[in-house]
Design a protein around this nucleic acid. Structure first.
Lengths: 197, 197
DNA sequence: CAGCTTCCATACGGCAGAGTATGGGGTTAC
DNA sequence: GTAACCCCATACTCTGCCGTATGGAAGCTG
């Protein structure tokens, strides 16, 4: 596992592909075309290489998927950690959290892609962990904001549901994207309706 | 196209499969395993028959998918029509609508499956039409309830997003199903938060 | 009964992707 | 320099599906 050979700290061309390269490109492919599109040969072509390389680094397709998802989950945990340490007052922190997460893109697309296959043995557990973490964070913040426990849980589910659903509608192109002018007004409406009680 | 031969009005065994049978079974398969699982040979096996039959009734896989989706869209329009003619006061009608749609199952699963492939040329248009119809209905009801136009549109998007998102979380098993006790309390919370203003 | 249509079974060719086997060029170690 | 190792290319088999071609059994029709 020692990082090998000519460490090309200079140019743009990598002499040799690491497992991390494969995983990153796998995530990009998932974000673009979904998990079904994550196939070994096309991915290799995309990297300008043949699958002979792939099967040297990974035992098979499932292992690549698992590793890539683990990497994605790790990134998501860091995002949450950042949001946790952000604001001070819970109301501001929540609003800030909504605004912050409304501006990600790659993570969103991957999340949507994963939602499409919640029963896949490699995907289900990761997806559940990530979702549960996020909802738990929301529920805690809402409780801190004064809501009783059950109501906080319900509200957290509602908030998170509306988030996931909005991602779906965005994929259908039926709802403004984060660049269009209506978007900010909508987010503001959501905050007023769901947070400022 | 004449419905043929021995019209078995009696038993349970069909002598001959109609296109409608194929379309119905296709929808069932989509609801269970997604659009990617809609393949000709497995579907034929499921019906206890070979694909020789299929290619007599349909030119190909895409035509089956289109016809099946058209059938589904038709059913969905009828559901909406029923909800429209239901209650009288807009608030009750909305609440009733939420309760009613929260109890469907097959339609939901199909909708989720379709959401997973919004870019597919056969699926995208149907999906957009259905979604837009539903949201328009919500927005109209909300406006009738007293909200100004823009706010009604935002609120309709929010309501519908929360609906779609809840379907996703249900698929992950992270949120109570319509049989479990918590479900009714959650729906009540949603109604109070999003409708009773 | 012969003939036609309807619906389905079987067999075939083609394609795409999963893994496997094997070899070879380049680098590193001794 | 040569032996070993890392990384990748090539060629192969195997599987699952699409779509087609063709034949055959059952039913109506005359």
């Amino acid at each position: 596992m020692a990082k090998s050979s000519t460490d090309n700290s200079g140019g743009g061309e990598k002499a040799s592909l690491t497992p991390a390269d494969w995983e990153q490109e796998a995530l990009a492919l998932i974000a673009e075309k979904g998990i079904a599109a994550l196939r070994v040969e096309p991915l290799a072509r995309r990297l300008g290489i043949t699958k002979g390389s792939f099967y040297w680094h990974f035992p098979g397709r499932d292992e690549l998927l698992s590793k890539a998802l683990a990497r994605w989950e790790q990134q998501d945990r860091q995002h949450l950690r950042l949001s946790l340490s952000a604001g001070s007052a819970p109301a501001e922190r929540l609003a800030d959290f909504v605004w912050r997460t409304s501006r990600q893109t790659l993570t969103h697309r991957i999340y949507v892609a994963l939602c499409a296959s919640p029963d896949h043995p490699c995907i289900g557990p990761v997806l559940r962990r990530v979702t549960e973490r996020r909802i738990k964070y929301l529920a805690a913040a809402l409780e801190e904001l004064g809501l009783p426990t059950t109501e906080a849980r319900h509200r957290a589910n509602l908030m998170y549901s509306s988030y996931v659903g909005y991602l779906q509608l965005q994929a259908q192109g039926l709802v403004p994207d984060k660049d269009e002018p209506d978007f900010d007004a909508y987010v503001q409406h959501v905050i007023e309706t769901l947070i400022e009680i």
